[in-house]
Nucleic acid binder design. Sequence first.
DNA 1: ATTATAATTGCATACGTATACAATGTGATA
DNA 2: TATCACATTGTATACGTATGCAATTATAAT
Lengths: 334, 334
Amino acid sequence: MVSSHDVAKLAGVSQATVSRVLNGSTLVKKDTVEKVERAMKELNFRPNLIARSLVKNKTNTLALITEHLHNPFYVESTRRIVKIAAKHGYNVLVFFHQIGDGTRLYEQVLSNKVDGIIMSSILIDDPIYQVLESLQDIPYVTFNRKHRLGMNYVELDNVHATSLSVDHVVSLGHKKIAYMGGSLLASTFYGRLQGFYQAISRHKIHIKDSWIKMTDTSSMSIKEACKELIEDADQPTAIIAATDAIAMTCLDYLLAYGYRVPEDISLTGIDNIDITSHHSIQLTTVGIKLEESMGELAIERLIEMIEQEDLRTSPVQITLEPCLMQRKTTGHIE
Amino acid sequence: MVSSHDVAKLAGVSQATVSRVLNGSTLVKKDTVEKVERAMKELNFRPNLIARSLVKNKTNTLALITEHLHNPFYVESTRRIVKIAAKHGYNVLVFFHQIGDGTRLYEQVLSNKVDGIIMSSILIDDPIYQVLESLQDIPYVTFNRKHRLGMNYVELDNVHATSLSVDHVVSLGHKKIAYMGGSLLASTFYGRLQGFYQAISRHKIHIKDSWIKMTDTSSMSIKEACKELIEDADQPTAIIAATDAIAMTCLDYLLAYGYRVPEDISLTGIDNIDITSHHSIQLTTVGIKLEESMGELAIERLIEMIEQEDLRTSPVQITLEPCLMQRKTTGHIE
DNA sequence: ATTATAATTGCATACGTATACAATGTGATA
DNA sequence: TATCACATTGTATACGTATGCAATTATAAT
């Protein structure tokens, strides 16, 4: 491997000078710069960023810890995060969090000496909180989900989000309303279920316990829950899915079994992922009002925190207002 | 930052011994191991992988260079690649290739001293070929697309793929068949257009030049092409889209303008991305026969190449057989 | 008890770059 | 010409870990 020493030798200067040229230092004579650059080209020299990182204690690398990309919501965040990071000169290491990973994954991330961590995959009482808080040096931010004890986060007002969905289907005349969500260990599902209950009780509607479905967000688990709802003697007329990804799977199942949406059953999601606006889908959902997504807001804050140490004192705590995107999967009760 | 030296001092041993414990060396006495491990825990020591990489000349990191994740095909590959890489102990740096980036992105990747490169984003005459071939040390493999001059690749038999689509719509009675693809600088689009022409001429069908649409795969560009096809005085009855992503956008456009698919117009894609089997979509497409995807095959080969140097002599050149997945977006001509 | 052998450990150095500091060269000024 | 300021370059070292080799200690064999 050709190093700056090789370049130095060929150019007839010291390695320090090569390093200065590499970093665009102004205190190198013009023709020395040229000499060095010629040598670099001749040897096809590429600076070793690993070595540079070791010295500067800066890797220009961020860690993104996300759910697997089955949920398009996380795909869209990932896309935007990588893009914005690149624009600011940061590479992104992508990690998928698996339930049951514990802090192993985080240890690995921290060993990699990333400059910052952005994550969606955190549980409401995640023990990783302690680890992250104990690092004064490395900024982190969560998006979508948050930890009970605070931290830096960008989230949706989850309670309000489901509330909007329920208000909407109630306004269409629905009274038998089901909810389908995921593990309450995630702040999103926790808040969304809470919002559901609040709205239901505000409207003074009676809900059967069996209409509240908790899934593990796997396709199988969602379809199983759908099956149970459909086979319920007292079938609900509307399903409030806690995420678009869940709603999409419900929709698939319902159509597969000959149900019409919304004629037979109304369906709503949350997140406003891209595919929901497709004319084959037209899913009624709840999104945020901003142009920017949570992932974008989060990564921008993170980079600010990395580059301006004084910003790290005040935590980033952003809760975004939801708004209903009414489309074609919800209709009046007949 | 707490280093192995700090641990050594606390444990009353040398840094070398700490390093040996770290690497599970068998030649350290049991109680020394315990002493060191206690010290590590007490200091909350995390080995610096950057420093380790510098010494071992191995980063345990792979670079994935892919298209932006608007195309679900690349999302699915990315998901699988990251997962398999993690299983083998590799981190993945994700880079999005932008047209016009030239070799700048690759220089950056190479500076990062990754252990291997997996990429879909390569053009058929990409100058990056020279750069990659000149590195004897770092293995690489492309998937989906390939370079004209060989290299290591895992691809679909693109010519055959469009051929299957055309055969299918012809068998349904279609004679006015349009094609919609992307830049011929990508081997995929090149092969798929070729396959289209071959099948058309095999069936002795006459095609209007204006039915061959070249897009830049952006949503806008695809919709513009759709518009032109629809407004053509001699409207085609079937559209062969070169990718599912293109087909999905076509479908969106057609439905938005009141066309029924397949009653008014038949539509096919290629890639068999997950969403195509959704009951709201049911897109007829062409996929591969295997359980494993191209991305998976490619990453597995890449890791083999990294870990077994002797494998690097014979290139990985895999071309997979396509098969038709008939669904509901194609129908008999009326 | 003495030696031979094996098991542990420490010392010194390398990886490739950046940078504080020292050293040298350059030109201007008196 | 001597002096000084400034521009340019080189020397030495640090970053944190791994590892070849030498040194030490423990164990076994005589």
